[in-house]
Design a protein around this nucleic acid. Structure first.
Lengths: 120, 120
DNA sequence: TCAACCAGTTTACTTTTAGTAACCACCCAT
DNA sequence: ATGGGTGGTTACTAAAAGTAAACTGGTTGA
């Protein structure tokens, strides 16, 4: 029975990982929350204060309204942003970043800097 | 002509974003390189030294060989990892993280810590 | 009245990603 | 010769992600 870098070999020569990185490992879990297309950008655009739906969609440029709605709903469910109906008639909705959402900004800034520094 | 948070309104009332976050904005570009399923985990598993193909696939648990191959090829093209044939007959291949790949580790650690701290 | 706005929803696709399962060729030990 | 290993490839399917464009049902300003 030998062991090397988390992989065992039994007495019949069969190998198996000791601690396989099962799907819900922290990196993959984090990516599911922040990694979808546009999610990072949306959070980034909310960092300076509440933004209204159509303004957000315009600033995201290439994203369709459907995508923006979908991502916002997911991010709302994850507790990253809040949706507030500011007024009925004329309807106005503002999306804001939560305190929890703000905890992800440092990490997004790291990604942004990394991408800029390395000409990605 | 008014201006608010990067959005202009012309004299006919039409609005448009001044600096729309066009698709290749740094956050989205970075996510394309590091955000695919398994990519972060693969890089993380290589941080302590070269790992062989099947060991990597085993450690990733749920990932099929096809997925691992595909991601490794993309990461090789991006310059994050190198593939080295260690020996012919019996064939042995080792994947290693490049210096460039190492520049992404800090950011992956931030993501990992963030996911762990917030029970994601 | 007309056009543009608000905040979406719906439809009808296309594209991309993820995934399984089987297979290749060759090696080594029992 | 059987069953395990090595490092993949191929064929196919299913699910997710993404698109454009139309539509709702109002409001607002010229």
């Amino acid at each position: 029975m030998s062991k090397l870098l988390g992989i065992t070999t039994d007495n019949k020569g069969r190998k198996q990982a000791l601690e396989p990185c099962l799907e819900p490992c922290p990196i993959e879990r984090g990516m599911r929350v922040l990694g979808g297309k546009w999610k990072g950008s949306i959070l980034w655009h909310l960092k300076d204060g509440p933004v209204r739906f159509n303004d957000l969609a315009r600033q995201l440029g290439g994203a369709s309204k459907k995508m923006v709605t979908q991502r916002l709903r997911e991010m709302e469910a994850a507790g990253l942003v809040t949706r507030e109906v500011v007024s009925d008639r004329p309807i106005a909705v503002a999306y804001d970043i939560t305190d929890f959402g703000k905890t992800a900004l440092g990490f997004l800034e790291a990604l942004k800097n990394w991408a800029e520094e390395h000409q990605i």
